[in-house]
């Protein structure tokens, strides 16, 4: 049950895009940890830049998407900076999408 819920959380996160990039938070490599226990989802995530102006918007999107999953009644988000995000954290799918978007990687 817990593993299934965690997979649903990852699915939900893979549908949230960075507003500045056409790539999901998961493919950006911004999600560091997902754990679900007793209906509480704990998510560690980072940002590409400490001064990201979309930080509150993205955190709100994550909270809304994960709260909507049946079986999740609490969402705890932790913004972490270690290890620091670099483009090495992009998934292959993320690299392909960003390249198609015209970004040099």
């Amino acid at each position: 049950m817990t593993a299934a819920l965690e997979n649903r959380v990852w699915d939900a996160l893979s549908r949230i895009t960075d507003p500045e990039m056409p790539v999901s938070l998961v493919d950006m490599g911004m999600v560091y940890r997902v754990a679900v226990m007793d209906g509480a989802a704990e998510i560690d995530l980072t940002f590409t830049s400490i001064g990201c102006p979309a930080m509150d918007m993205i955190l709100g999107d994550v909270r809304d998407a994960v709260s909507a999953i049946p079986g999740i009644d609490r969402v705890e988000l932790e913004v972490v900076w270690s290890p620091p995000w670099t483009k090495d954290r992009l998934t292959q799918r993320g690299r392909t999408l960003l390249s198609a978007f015209g970004l040099a990687l």
Binding site: S49, I50, G51, V80, W81, S82, P83, P84, W85, T86
Partner: peptide
């Protein structure tokens, strides 16, 4: 200490 590597990268 945990945030400094990212800050210094920037």
């Amino acid at each position: 200490a945990r945030a400094v590597p990212k800050m210094l990268l920037e």
